[in-house]
Design a protein around this nucleic acid. Structure first.
Lengths: 139, 139
DNA sequence: TTATGGTTAGGTAAAACCTAACTAACGAAG
DNA sequence: CTTCGTTAGTTAGGTTTTACCTAACCATAA
């Protein structure tokens, strides 16, 4: 008879598998199956900032400005970002995410959402509430 | 009032955060914080095979033999693997994981275990069983 | 004129892969 | 036992991409 902890492990292993599958699906749908972890992190940073400029991103990520230029050029080629000039100061360019870029930036978020949806489709209201209540105790 | 699905999302987001923290801890403990996703996948493949040779690994991963040689040389430098000559056929070398290599190979597994342990420490038996029962329904 | 924002030029190191050629070991045949 | 063909793994030399750098430059602003 499998013990308690082992059973817990298995059900969570399954959940993680589901979530990872959802992640891969999102990457594939965007046509970017091989995007690196670092690249996704950069997109996420861009997404999280209100109006991010090259200098600001360089500052946040502790990289040089040419590094940011180079990386944004790559993202432009991937159709994940575009440049938008500031109307008030012609020197300034804002880095904007495209729809695809936003999707990639939030891929982990969306994957988790898809997983939750899978869950919602398998459980009734009572079970979901119980789940939430129990898991809220985990720190 | 936050709706049901949103609450579910939040508790799982927290769990994922915990699991990722555990993952990072394992990488750091091994002194390999920057190991790439591909490298970990290679170690995992080596771990999953019974007795893996260079040719076999090349076959499984659909790479050339010199690619495998090069990669194993890197892992040797990281102290994750070592070579062991076959006693019956002097041409054959088995690729063996060190303790560190095994730890890196199973890092996802261990991270999940650490997360489950965190859970076990926060919940009683009844709650754990309930959790297992509910989550077993998710496909 | 000086300062700021971003780009270009030229560079490094590492990862991830390749083909061609080679060495060592093995097994089969004579 | 020797020879030959085959197999296992290595070395040499190469490519492309990622991820970063400094120095110099151009455009814009104050």
């Amino acid at each position: 008879m499998m013990d308690r902890e082992e059973q817990l492990f298995e059900v969570f292993e399954n959940l993680l598998r589901i979530k990872n599958e959802c992640s891969c699906t999102i990457f594939s749908e965007c046509g970017l199956p091989d995007m690196t972890v670092k690249q996704v992190a950069y997109l996420r940073t861009i997404d999280e900032q209100e109006e991010v400029t090259f200098s600001r991103l360089a500052e946040i990520t502790r990289n040089s400005k040419p590094t940011i230029t180079d990386m944004i050029n790559k993202f432009v080629r991937m159709e994940c970002v575009y440049r938008e000039r500031c109307p008030d100061d012609g020197r300034i360019l804002y880095i904007r995410l495209t729809e695809k870029g936003r999707k990639m930036a939030k891929s982990e978020h969306y994957a988790l959402r898809l997983m939750i949806e899978r869950m919602v489709n398998s459980l009734d209201k009572y079970e979901m509430d119980l789940l939430t209540e129990i898991l809220q105790k985990v720190r």
